[in-house]
Computed example of a mutant assay.
Amino acid sequence: MSNKFRGAFVAITTPFNPDGSLDEQGLIDLLEFQIAAGTHGIVPCGTTGEAATMSHEEHHRVVELTVKTVAGRVPVLAGTGSNSTSESIELTRHAKEAGADGALLITPYYNKPSQEGLYRHFKALAEAVDIPIILYNVPGRTSVNMLPATVARCAEIDNIVGIKEATGSLQQVSEVIRACPNGFAVLSGDDFTSMATVMVGGTGVISVSSNVAPAEMAAMIKAALNNDNAKARELHYRLFPLMQAMFFDTNPVPAKTALKMMGKIKSDFVRLPLYATDQNTVAKLQQVLQQCGLV
C-alpha cells in the first residue's frame, strides 16, 4: 500500500453564509490556508464538515470544489459515509468520479448493526466502488464500536487500506495495528491520542485542531513519524489546550467560532440542530487562542 494516508489530515469545516447556504469562496480560501500552512491532506464532508446536514447536491459540490481547488497538491479523502449502504455507495461513486484520492466511510450510525453487518456493509462498498477506502470508527457519534477483529477482516479486502480510529482508546488502536497487515494505515480520530497513536505504529491523524493550527499539527505528526519524540511531545503539550478547546462545545461549533475570530471565515454559522455557542464559551475559546498565539 502507498503511504498516501500519512501525516496530519484536516477534517475541514464547511463554511456557510449567514443564511445557511454554502460559502464556496470561503471553502476555497480555507483550502488555500490549509495547503499554505503545510497540512498533509484534506478531508471534506466528515463530521467536522457537517455532512449530516448537507443535501446530496451540496455534498457533491463540496467534494468537487475541494478536489478542483487542491489540484493534486495533497491527497483528498472525501467523507462519503451514511447509515444506508446504498446511499454510501452513491456518495462514494461520486467521490471517485470527482477525482478524490480516497473515501472515508463512517460505521453506519443509528441502525446499530452487528459486527457481521458492519463487515458486509464495508465489503459491499469496496466491491461497488474501486477507490481506496478508510474506515471510520467513532462510537461516541454512532453508538456502535467496530471491533479490531472486524477491522482485520475488512483489511483483507484489497481496497480497504486504513481506518480512522476515534475511540480515544490506545488499547483499541494497538489491537487494530496488531491485527491488521503491515501497511494498513491507522489514523487517530482524536487529536489527544494522535501523537501516541503514531508512537505505537499509527500513520497520523484526521484532525479537528488542524482547522485552526494546521502547521503545528503537521509538525507534531511529522516529528512523531520521524521518531523525534522530544519535539513531538513538546508540540503535543503546546497544542493540548487547543485540542481541549475544540471540544468546549459540540464539534465543529468551536472550530468555526475560532476560525471566525482568526479572520479565516466570514461567518461561523452552523446548521441546526447544532447551534452557536454561548458567550462564556466564546470568551474561554478566545483566551486559549490568545495563549496559542492564534489571535
Rank of each mutant, 00 (worst) to 15 (best):
221 I>E: 00
79 G>W: 00
136 Y>F: 02
41 G>H: 05
162 G>Q: 04
212 V>F: 08
13 T>P: 04
109 Y>D: 01
273 P>N: 01
214 P>A: 04
156 E>P: 00
22 L>R: 11
82 S>W: 01
69 T>I: 05
143 S>D: 11
263 G>W: 08
5 F>E: 06
236 H>C: 03
84 S>K: 09
275 Y>K: 11
102 G>S: 08
161 V>L: 09
247 F>M: 12
129 V>D: 11
207 S>K: 01
116 E>I: 06
47 T>Y: 02
36 A>M: 03
132 P>Y: 10
21 S>F: 03
95 A>R: 07
45 C>V: 14
183 G>S: 10
86 S>N: 08
190 D>E: 13
37 A>P: 00
289 L>F: 07
118 L>T: 12
287 Q>M: 09
212 V>C: 09
253 V>K: 11
90 E>A: 15
249 D>N: 10
128 A>Y: 07
190 D>W: 02
56 H>F: 15
123 K>W: 03
247 F>D: 02
68 K>D: 13
1 M>F: 05
136 Y>K: 06
25 Q>V: 14
57 E>R: 07
275 Y>T: 14
108 P>R: 03
188 S>C: 08
33 F>I: 10
159 N>Q: 05
57 E>A: 14
275 Y>I: 14
86 S>K: 11
172 Q>T: 12
179 A>V: 08
275 Y>H: 11
255 A>F: 05
223 A>F: 06
215 A>C: 01
80 T>Y: 00
130 D>S: 15
106 I>G: 03
168 G>C: 03
232 A>H: 09
145 N>M: 10
271 R>K: 14
34 Q>D: 10
208 V>H: 00
124 A>H: 05
230 A>E: 15
227 N>F: 07
269 F>R: 12
144 V>M: 12
87 E>P: 01
164 K>I: 06
24 E>A: 15
162 G>V: 03
25 Q>E: 15
96 K>N: 08
